[in-house]
Design a protein around this nucleic acid. Structure first.
Lengths: 237, 237
DNA sequence: ATTGCGGTTTCTGTATACACAAGAGTGATC
DNA sequence: GATCACTCTTGTGTATACAGAAACCGCAAT
């Protein structure tokens, strides 16, 4: 999703409004601008190095993305993420991903998923290689998502999925990753991929349902843990 | 998503950008601005009576809504609606509505749906009353959607649903309504409402699935018919 | 007749200036 | 001492001016 910047490797003179949008968006998703942060037009325009006009356009897009909310009269602020909103996001995510994967399995074009299958088979070994292994694993996830988007061939659905993934990226930063969970997730992904290759929409849908259920449990548990430990050892990190 | 504006029901002096957004949006959804229509900033700003700055903000929001696409260098244009895109929209709609109704049935708060149930029971009689009856039927549909949104209690899901409904409104204008279909649809809605009241998510989901399947078939058939008749009697309407 | 080139024109993208509204701070009055 | 009002500051909403780029038109040359 935020690889979009990397994809246009050309240093084409980006519009100021686009620059502002990407920077703010990146800073919000990466957590650099914490939820609840109040943002003033002049202040941000100055910081980013654009004038207020393109900045306002950028903010309008961020509001549409749901990353920012306008405040009555006085600037705008970064939307915050409550535990409730995580569950809610997963309710939407489940609807979208189950449908996407069901469609991908129905389309019956296994080719793009065969290579991914091999990669996910060896994922456990990858996850033994520490931090860089984990990073490469996430690249794999990105590739799976891209293959899925391509297979679905539905701009509406893919657009909605992309919006969800943006919010998901914010949530991921809230909780440290659990290595055991990553292994289990890899296995779940493998099952989903196999179902797509086999052209079994029902199996793929159910597998996705379960995968997301486990994923949500894991995220909520990780957040609980984090908030508990940060309560006891406040300055730990 | 764009409920922020609806919430201030007061006739407070609307911002120019908001006025421009609503007017353009209304004109696009109502078909007054046909798909493919090219729009120029200065031209539109003049027509609506705002300056270019708020107009650009309005257009940015319309682009985010998917109602408008920017063109390389030369203004923007109203997105068009292909038959393919209708099926695609329904793939998304199905995912969202099935999930929404499943959740509404799970929440188990039948109160708001009891009155709606009565209304839908008498819907067939309503549909005998000609045009104003049909109009009142559509008001009923709106109320059902509102009750559903409230029951779902999920901003993400409701937001996505609202976006879909916007596009749906455009599609509806493409095909004349079939009275027989409306009667059948009313019965389908009744079944869904009953399932929600009974707190049976699975039944509600399946009923919705079928309802949307029939709805899509009807829309596609109506469009086929229209385009066929307009081919033979070109200037008929 | 067609194609290439240059001038012109129009339109976008951006900056900035101005007006108005909301809040905070201060002073005066009760 | 507290409260209210006024002003001053700050920030948004809008208009407009300016610059750069892209399309259009005409002209000419092959």
């Amino acid at each position: 999703m935020y690889t979009e910047t990397a994809m246009l490797g050309l240093d084409a003179p980006l519009r100021a409004s686009e620059r502002a949008y990407r920077q703010l968006r990146g800073e919000i998703v990466s957590g650099l601008l914490a939820p609840g942060t109040a943002l003033l037009e002049v202040e941000q325009a100055e910081r980013i190095g654009v004038s207020r006009t393109p900045l306002r356009e950028a903010v309008a897009r961020l509001i549409a993305d749901g990353l920012v909310v306008g405040r009555r009269g006085r600037g705008f602020e970064v939307t915050d993420i409550s535990v409730d909103s995580i569950s809610e996001l997963y309710e939407l995510r489940q609807a979208l991903e189950v449908q996407a994967i069901r469609l991908a399995a129905t389309r019956r074009d296994p080719a793009p998923f065969l290579a991914l299958r091999d990669a996910f088979v060896t994922a456990p070994e990858l996850l033994d290689q520490g931090d860089i292994g984990v990073r490469r694993y996430y690249v794999l996830i990105d590739e799976l998502e891209d293959a899925l988007d391509a297979a679905v061939e539905n701009p509406f659905l893919v657009g909605a999925l992309r919006a969800v993934r943006t919010h998901l990226a914010r949530i991921r930063r809230l909780a440290r990753r659990n290595p055991l969970r990553l292994r289990a997730a890899a296995a779940e992904h493998l099952l989903i991929i196999d179902a797509i290759i086999a052209g079994d929409p029902s199996l793929a849908a159910h597998a996705t349902h379960i995968h997301l259920h486990q994923s949500l449990l894991s995220v909520l548990a990780a957040i609980d843990e984090d908030s508990a430990s940060s309560r006891s050892t406040t300055a730990a990190d």
